[in-house]
Computed example of a mutant assay.
Amino acid sequence: MSTPRTLAVVSAGLSNPSSTRLLADRLTGATARELETLGHDVTVETIELRDHAHAVMDAMLTGFPTGDLATAIEHLVAADGVIAVTPLFTTTYSGLFKSFVDILDKDALGGMPVLLGATGGTARHSLAVDYSMRPLFTYLHADVLSTAVFAATDDWAGAGDQVNPLPRRIERAGKELAERVHVRQNVGPADPFASTPSFLDMLGGA
């Protein structure tokens, strides 16, 4: 009997179409195929940050995400696993990507399996995944996968899978995330009021 699993995919590409979204889709496909092999029905919730850019800025100013952005965050924190992909600018994640992470509750991704991906012009930027993205999600107590995927411009023009390592790395990362999601029991986001006594409890001794 198949069991449902949900993937939340955060894509911070600024253009349309974008190589960032292309990488996100490839990672999602690899993960979904492996989850189906493991006996799961897979639902994918894609969060295209470009579509929420103004709402993200409003949330930073007000402290409260609203509308479609609030719905997207609900899908994110309720997912069984997350794929997060950003373009790299000046050797780090984009401002839009960081702003989105900044409006999340600090406990929203606690224990969440997260696969990191990034795109950039040249392979010189690939280390940014480990020295900027990974610490960011580690700070949020996410379960960050050891395998991350960086795609430079030249990777999309490679001479086939036998020469270009990108497809093999995508498959490896997708399998790793699927295995982590497969064994995870998603309990959903923590209730911030769970430990608050009820009015009747407070009157119990009266």
Rank of each mutant, 00 (worst) to 15 (best):
P4D: 07
T6A: 14
L22K: 15
L27M: 14
T28A: 14
T28Y: 07
T31V: 07
T37V: 12
G39D: 01
V42F: 06
T46W: 00
T46R: 08
E48Q: 08
L49D: 00
D51L: 09
H52T: 07
M60L: 15
L61Y: 07
F64H: 10
I73T: 10
V77I: 15
V77A: 07
A78R: 15
G81L: 08
L88E: 01
L88H: 08
T90G: 00
G95A: 14
L96Q: 09
K98E: 02
F100P: 08
F100T: 04
V101W: 02
L104A: 06
L109T: 11
L115Y: 10
G117D: 09
G121Y: 08
T122Q: 04
S126A: 14
A128P: 10
V129I: 15
D130G: 07
M133L: 15
P135R: 08
H141R: 15
D143G: 03
V144Y: 05
A148K: 13
F150Y: 15
A152K: 01
D155A: 15
D155C: 08
A157V: 05
G160D: 08
P167A: 07
G174T: 05
K175L: 01
E176T: 06
L177N: 03
E179G: 10
V183E: 00
R184D: 00
V187M: 00
A190F: 01
T196P: 01
P197C: 04
L203F: 12
L203D: 03
L203A: 11
G204H: 05
